[in-house]
């Protein structure tokens, strides 16, 4: 899979260099990655003290911390690209939902543990090849962030795969729940990989990796991909589900209640 991603990286060697110098394209692109990580971190952090076993509380917190760490680096860089003096907190705490660029998948509520693992599997299967390509891109900052985040995402993918296999091929109940989770989340994966030839990295180029990883895991887990023509999207242009506004209300409540305060 990593090999795949590396091939992808080589197949589109000029991808990132093709971006116009600075400008909103790259800002939007980086912001999208940052918001994916931030919103994913916030959802995973909501699991804390609710995990199905104490060990899993620790594991989910680790993954949340990884996503949060990547979000901070990416937001900081996005702020620099924008050049308007916004730091990580200004971007995280003082934008409204219409200004967020994350994909819809990450903002979906946690649901049960199966739903969370389905979301994590699809997110990681997208982030691993994405960060792998970034790691060898021409933008030094993104390459640095990609190199770090790629290893973390590989662990997230491992963790999600491990649980999807166990839940899919565990008990009747866990199989039923895991299949229902895949059915529910699957339509949202289209947005992750929707072609965008103008983007610094065209998400469509990640599909080969994504498909091969996901189909392998689902097959081992005795699960199937649902047949549906529904392809919800809008996150990348700031048109979200109803859930994001609530998530941000919680995330931002304290910060916004004390304008100008330091913490």
């Amino acid at each position: 899979m990593t090999a795949h991603a590396e091939q992808t990286a080589q197949a589109v060697p000029g991808a990132v260099q093709a971006v116009p110098e600075a400008g909103t394209d790259r800002f939007d692109f980086v912001l999208g990655l940052a918001d994916d990580a931030l919103v994913a971190a916030q959802r995973l952090a909501q699991w804390c003290t609710h995990g199905p076993e104490m060990e899993e509380d620790i594991a989910l917190a680790n993954i949340a911390l990884d996503q949060l760490g990547a979000a901070r680096l990416l937001l900081t860089y996005a702020g620099e690209l924008e050049g308007a003096g916004r730091d990580e907190d200004a971007l995280a705490y003082r934008r409204d939902d219409r200004e967020f660029r994350n994909c819809l998948l990450v903002e979906l509520p946690n649901g049960d543990f199966a739903l969370t693992m389905a979301k994590l599997l699809f997110l990681a299967a997208y982030q691993v090849p994405l960060y792998t390509v970034l790691a060898s891109c021409g933008d030094e900052r993104l390459a640095e962030i990609g190199a770090k985040a790629r290893k973390e995402s590989a662990y997230h993918l491992d963790h999600a795969s491990l649980w999807v296999r166990r839940l899919g091929d565990g008990t009747d109940e866990s199989h039923r729940r895991m299949q229902a989770a895949v059915d529910e989340v699957w339509p949202y994966t289209h947005e992750l990989l929707a072609p965008d030839p103008t983007a610094p990295i065209d998400p469509a180029t990640l599909r080969v990796d994504f498909d091969s990883v996901v189909s392998g895991v689902l097959a081992e887990a005795t699960l199937t991909v649902p047949e549906t023509a529904w392809k919800p999207d809008g996150g990348r242009s700031g048109v979200h589900t109803e859930h994001l506004s609530y998530l941000l209300a919680e995330l931002q409540v304290l910060h916004r209640a004390h304008p100008g305060a330091s913490w």
Partner: peptide, 21 residues
């Protein structure tokens, strides 16, 4: 954790609660 007023504080608090587990 979900309402921590800065991303740095969020990371620290999450790491701390995780340590407690």
């Amino acid at each position: 954790i979900t309402r921590a007023p800065s991303l740095k504080r969020k990371a620290i608090l999450l790491a701390k609660v995780q340590d407690e587990a």
